[in-house]
Computed example of a mutant assay.
Amino acid sequence: MPASLYLVAGKATDSVTHGFLPAAARLGLDVIVLTDRPAAHTDLPAPVVAVVGCDVSDFRDVVHRIADRAAGAGAAAEPAGIFSNSDFLQAPAALAAAYFGLPGKDWRAAARAKNKALARRHLAHLDPVFAADARAVPADAPYPLVLKPREGVASEDVFLVRDARELRARVAEIGARRADPLVAEEYLPGALHTLETLGDGHEVRVLGSFRTDVSPPPHFVEERLEWAPPPPETPQVLEQLAALGAGFGACHTEFAVHEGRARIIEVNYRLIGDHCDFLLADLLGVPLHEQILRAHLGSRLPPAVPRPRGHAVAEPVIADRAGRLTAAPGPVELDDGGVRLAYRPQRTVGDEVALTRTNRDYLGTVRAIGPGPDDVRAALARFRAAHEWTIA
């Protein structure tokens, strides 16, 4: 009898549809999707056996829906695991897992990671960073500051502001279109990195790191992620993650290194996104999505520590104007000499594109793995020259 995995989801994502659902099928699981957007999760492949409407932001409704289904369908629907890959739903999923006595993340760590103000307060003893409510920034604040939604994602409404006048203008601009609380944080200079980790409740394993290129200020659009050895300052990041309590399952952490000091920018307590999860799995040669699900089912990580098989780059194709996408390639996989290339679109021909100066402007992402940096960069340049993306 297949075990049941309850997947807590908001919008449909490629990481779930093309990553976690096939992984669940290989593990022989039945998947029940709990979502507040049932219409976005139609025609899902096996192993999805049901899509259940749920207020996924409220752990009480998540618990109720799981208990109700288990009572109605018997032992086959008893939860073997509860999992989410959504930034916004880590705490509700963690609380539901705790209710049923299942492996999962500490809900407090999930709440701290999502709420940037809580994270800064919790880490102040290790790494004091100026942070304040954006509407109550003191006159002596250390400008420039980074203005951002307290629980935002994808660089949306993130701006560098250089003085109090610019701060007030940006707060008013953002406040006119969203009511989310805003924070203003000290700008952290230095080289930008990510740290990708995976934990099973007994150990936290570093999978690797990417160097990140972002657009010029005042915006912070990620323009390129290139594989690189974790910097020497990585133990400082691991210490801060341990202080937050973020160690179970997948975690994607963004940080800056400057003059020997590593400072966390934000913690995304889920798997790296924008198709970099597929790149990471291919580079390491491991069933990464399966390993994450196994952790949520109570399994230990495999004894072998994965090692990268070459060099890798993820390079998004970014819209440079608003309009209708009239030409773009579909999914592509090909070999260019010793470099394996894959392109997965995030927009399709006919889509209307609104220029946001955020990661929402991605039209698709090109992934490349090859023997070395020069080979990979050259193959990426050839791929982009051979394909057309047109916004009219």
Rank of each mutant, 00 (worst) to 15 (best):
M1S: 14
S4T: 15
S4D: 05
Y6V: 11
L7M: 15
K11E: 13
D14S: 12
T17N: 10
A24S: 08
A25G: 15
I32D: 06
D36G: 14
D43E: 07
A46G: 09
V48E: 02
H64Y: 15
H64I: 05
A70S: 15
A75D: 11
P79K: 12
F83S: 02
S84M: 09
D87G: 04
Q90V: 00
F100Q: 13
L102K: 02
G104N: 06
K105C: 15
W107C: 08
A113E: 08
K114D: 14
R120K: 14
H122I: 08
H122F: 11
A124S: 15
H125K: 13
V129L: 13
P138F: 07
A139L: 11
D140R: 07
P142N: 10
Y143N: 09
P144R: 15
P149R: 02
R150Y: 01
A154H: 03
S155V: 01
S155T: 10
R162D: 11
D163R: 04
A172S: 13
G175W: 07
R178E: 12
A179M: 02
L182R: 00
E185K: 10
E196F: 07
T197D: 11
L198F: 00
L207P: 04
V214P: 07
S215Y: 07
P216A: 15
E223I: 14
R224P: 11
P230R: 03
P232M: 05
T234A: 07
Q236H: 06
V237Q: 04
A246F: 02
C251E: 10
E254C: 11
E266L: 03
E266S: 03
Y269W: 12
I272P: 02
G273F: 06
H275P: 00
D282K: 09
L283T: 03
P287S: 15
L288N: 00
I292S: 00
A295E: 00
H296I: 00
H296Y: 15
G298Q: 00
G298T: 00
R300T: 07
P308T: 03
H311A: 09
V313D: 11
V313W: 08
E315T: 09
P316W: 01
V317K: 01
D320F: 08
D320T: 14
G323T: 08
R324D: 08
R324W: 05
T326N: 05
A327L: 02
P329M: 05
G330R: 06
P331L: 02
V332I: 12
G338Y: 03
V339E: 06
R340W: 05
V353K: 06
A354Q: 10
R357A: 12
R357W: 14
T358H: 07
N359W: 12
D361F: 04
Y362V: 10
Y362L: 11
G364Y: 04
V366S: 00
G370W: 05
P371M: 08
P373D: 03
P373T: 06
D374M: 01
V376T: 14
R377D: 09
A378M: 04
E388S: 02
